[in-house]
Design a protein around this nucleic acid. Structure first.
Lengths: 233, 233
DNA sequence: TGTACATCAGTGAACGCGCGTTCACTGATGTAC
DNA sequence: TGTACATCAGTGAACGCGCGTTCACTGATGTAC
């Protein structure tokens, strides 16, 4: 089974390259990644890496796609675990939202790579990068829809409002109908809050201010979710 | 007036260095800043820069302090302008919150420098960096307190809750009493939302999703502020 | 008014370093006959 | 079973490049006397 074998070997090394790349990024920052440093670390010469990735940029693209995929998979796992344990749709949503942050704390360099400063000189190819970046939104939308279907959502009048230009974009770009639009809109607002807390924490702006970021995050999220009528616990 | 003159000359050049540094960061990313590139741009040799900054790290520190200071000053100006135009404390707060984003859009590289990925190998000296980073929080707190004093705030029962560990930190670190703590806590939550929307927008994650980030931001903020009882317009 | 002097912004060479990418190549492996 | 062969991961030298920092220096300026 020669072809099989070679593909496996290839994958093992290319995974080792990516793992080393992540470790080096954690030390030197996302912009400090270099093929020569990876090669040095793996006891290879730099040209050897060109068997696995066409260029440094190709490697970065692979790492970014992995990052988005890993984030979405981690959050999905958390919601599935909750569902398996008999949690309500609302509780599954909470589990997912908590996992958003947990992943970022476990993989801070991946967070920086995909949500932080772009790497100078690198331009992400949208064809491969956008689908990966969309996974999380799809997941959150599924969970929100399930909660809505279960009657666990109660939006106020104000929460039903979507600015006209934004509504038009939701319809044109995602084919979201007028009924689902407030839900999608709300999701984006909750996402912004999540993301803000996580970004501030990752870059060490939140910890000094609130002391215990765990309870700050969890309480803020619970409060925000209750605001849209979600009853948890 | 020789001493006067020399200080001015010195300041002019050191300002030119910082301005060039900002421009180069905008092109090459914050991590791509180099003394040699700045010198090249200014038709100087690299060693000449050592008359103005002790090292590359010293220059970065100056840029970071400038960034925090500029952000706070920009936001303060906006609130002062509103006050001068006869706006209520609640409206001044809204003006400040809108300015938070406006500054980031005008100076995206400064935003990335102070709120984004750290520069590899650089460690900010807290003694000089922390006071600058605290300016904005102080300003927002002033504005919130003024709004509260004007009776423009109405917190719900749930909004009065502060997690015990967080409350303890507020008291120990900032000497905030139990009455002001919910206000401070609320400010940090609103700040997180602001920051999340701005960070997502700056890094091009929000635009593709909501289409019109202007109205998304403004509507979300207005809704959030109304949630704490602020009546604006 | 004229001269000696201090100041100090800026120079140019050098230090040792790391980078992505290309190219022709080696040498082990395992298949095909 | 034995030999010719293709495959292909990995090598080593080279390309041209940029970096922070140090050092002894130059040369214009303007002051002090």
């Amino acid at each position: 089974v020669p072809r099989q074998r070679q593909v496996e070997l290839n994958e093992a090394t290319s995974n080792a390259i990516k793992a080393t790349a992540r470790r080096l990024m954690a030390e030197k920052g996302t912009a400090g990644l270099s093929l020569r440093a990876i090669a040095r670390e793996l006891d290879l010469t730099a040209p050897a890496l060109y068997h696995y990735f066409g260029s440094l940029d190709d490697l970065i693209t692979a790492l970014i796609v992995d990052g988005f995929t890993s984030h979405a998979a981690y959050v999905r796992q958390a919601s599935i675990r909750a569902a398996t344990a008999g949690a309500s749709p609302a509780q599954q949503l909470l589990a997912a939202v908590l996992a958003y942050r947990a992943w970022a704390l476990e993989q801070p360099i991946d967070f920086q790579l995909i949500y932080g400063n772009p790497i100078p000189g690198y331009a992400a190819p949208p064809a491969v990068t956008v689908p990966a970046a969309s996974l999380l939104g799809q997941l959150f939308m599924e969970l929100l829809m399930a909660a809505a279907a279960a009657g666990a959502l109660a939006l106020t009048e104000a929460q039903q409002q979507v600015p006209p230009l934004v509504l038009a974009h939701y319809q044109a770009r995602f084919g979201i109908d007028v009924l689902a639009a407030p839900l999608f809109h709300l999701m984006n607002q909750v996402w912004s809050l999540l993301h803000g807390m996580v970004a501030l924490e990752i870059y060490h702006h939140l910890g000094p201010v609130v002391g215990d970021t765990n309870s700050f995050y969890e309480q803020s999220i619970r409060h925000q979710l209750q605001t849209i009528g979600l009853s948890i616990m």
